[in-house]
Amino acid sequence: MVSLTINGRVVQANKGEMLLTVTRREGIDIPALCHHDAVEPFGACRLCMVEITKKEWDGWTNYVAACLYPVEDGLIVQTHSSKVNELRRTVLDLLLARCPNSPEIRQLAAEYGVTQTAYEEIPDADNCILCGLCTRVCERLGFKAISTVGRGHDKVVAPPLKEAPPDCVGCLSCAQVCPTNVIQYKDEGNKRTIWNKSFELIACKQCGKQIITRDFAEALSSQRNIPADYFELCDECHRKELSVKMGSIVSWSREAAS
């Protein structure tokens, strides 16, 4: 265990934990757009910057990304000092120039008092902040269907060769974690479309409810050894099936006892 001070309060933390993990547990709200617990910290968005110092630093302070900074004994942290807020305003100002139409970025910037970017807005901007969370999560899942391509101004998130990605299984995790909800998908009838690729949604054989795509279920069956017939019923029909089985077992044991 290590002991540190955050915004004047003494807090205990586990050795090796990142500062952001600790501030989140303490309920301190630090913007952190590129972070997700499913993947390793990445430090791309720079919004989680905080001010750190130590007694022995003689008044020197440093600014670090909380998502990437492991806790230390005796650390003194300020998460919303005027200097930190100023840094965040600058980052948000730049993000606003990149994604002037993103409701998520606009709202966050407004919370920090930035309503209009001081920089030149990027023409034909989309809402992608290039944090790479989607590609990192897809890689973590093992599919590696999408990646960032190009450099600098031309950098975009895309499937290889910008065609329907052969390794995508349509699980939607990329769309779920995207902090600015850029990744579009559509569920219609028994079809799901994402990244210009179309998938069959498995329909529950009792009630027709759809949960995941056939490609995803097949990947799970083969990689994780899950019997394919587990995916034939939806959760609700599985519960009904279990209640009926339990009824049969109970009446059978009653009969056996009488």
Binding site: S173, V177, I212, F216, A217
Partner: peptide, 10 residues
């Protein structure tokens, strides 16, 4: 990441 795999698999 809300992939719904567990919801479908249980």
């Amino acid at each position: 990441v809300k992939c719904m795999a567990c919801v479908a698999a249980c």
